[in-house]
């Protein structure tokens, strides 16, 4: 079961001036839902497009399903389903014409299965794609990616533009897909989404792989940004040494800080003063990355 489905070996791709990825080494195992997390422009799409052989590595290589991404691309694509981040379909075709076309290029698919997928996503196949909303186009793209029962799904920002109900349905479909033995590689800039459905996650920033973690580990290192409002003035140095605390700043009786891990130590120190309010901010992904993997926390501000 530990067979590798995607394996990047020193994968490097320069293109343009600053875009690209550098020296990626990564293994995705069969049967896992693997999240590829990073802010926009970090190199997620670049990596995915190498897997699809749309672009070619500058150095290094990628293996997909045990096959070389360059030389055996057609054989890979037979067993892979793909949803691009920037989805462009044929506007002049109806949903079912579009799916039939791609089904034909694949030498036929189980049509009742494809219809079932469309029904689950509440996608009307008789409409022309040009008249569909962005969300419905993405549904058509998803059905396209799943209809031939691939072994591996590669999804670039799959929930972009989907309404929350459909997102939930997609999550369920992905988990079922995994239960049936499929492997999912999905990119996202949405940490809660990745936490929710992925088994492991790789974090990429500015073209570099900064971490590969089990989701459980990531959760344990929960990162928050807090504001604690006190009744009176508090000394900043009282909080300086507290376990897990970063970026301490006190102005006018308000403590601003970020905390990695348990809040216990901070709360106990704060309780020595009169607390009026505690505000917890949902940190941006960029902040989380910087907190976890950036060099010094200080330069994050």
């Amino acid at each position: 079961m530990n067979e590798s489905v995607i394996s990047l070996d020193h994968l490097t791709k320069y293109y343009g001036k600053s875009r690209g990825v550098r020296d990626l080494n990564l293994t995705v195992r069969r049967g896992e839902v693997f999240g590829y997390l990073g802010p926009n422009g970090a190199g997620k799409t670049t990596t995915i497009r190498v897997l699809l052989d749309a672009i070619r590595p500058t150095e290094g290589s990628a293996q997909v399903l045990g096959l070389d991404s360059r030389r055996q691309s057609v054989a890979i694509k037979r067993r892979l389903g793909y949803l691009p981040g920037e989805l462009s379909l044929y506007d002049n075709l109806t949903g079912s014409e579009y799916l039939r076309y791609f089904a034909n290029l694949r030498g036929g698919v189980d049509w009742s299965f494809a219809r079932g997928l469309a029904a689950r996503l509440d996608l009307r196949l008789s409409q022309r794609i040009g008249s569909l909303s962005q969300g419905n186009k993405r549904k058509a793209g998803l059905v396209q990616a799943l209809m031939h029962r691939p072994e591996l799904l590669v999804l670039d920002e799959p929930t972009n533009g989907l309404d929350p109900l459909v997102q939930q349905e997609l999550y369920r479909m992905l988990l079922e897909f995994r239960q049936d033995g499929g492997t999912v590689f999905l990119s996202s800039h949405n940490l809660p989404e990745v936490e929710r459905i992925c088994d492991r996650v790789a974090v990429i920033r500015e073209g570099n792989l900064v971490a590969v973690e089990e989701i459980e580990t990531l959760k344990r290192r929960a990162y928050r940004e807090l504001e604690i409002h006190f009744a009176g003035r508090v000394p900043a140095q009282a909080f300086a040494g507290v376990e897990g605390i970063r970026r301490v700043r006190v102005d006018d009786g308000v403590l601003h800080c970020s905390v990695v891990g348990s809040l216990d130590a901070l709360i106990k120190v704060a309780a020595q003063y009169e607390v009026i309010n505690i505000v917890s901010h949902e940190p941006s992904l960029e902040r989380i990355f910087l907190a976890y993997y950036g060099g010094g926390i200080e330069d994050a501000a």
Partner: peptide, 14 residues
């Protein structure tokens, strides 16, 4: 340019 080549070539066609 219309962006449709990306998905077309995601099919098993060279």
């Amino acid at each position: 340019e219309r962006g449709t080549l990306d998905l077309l070539l995601a099919n098993p066609v060279s």
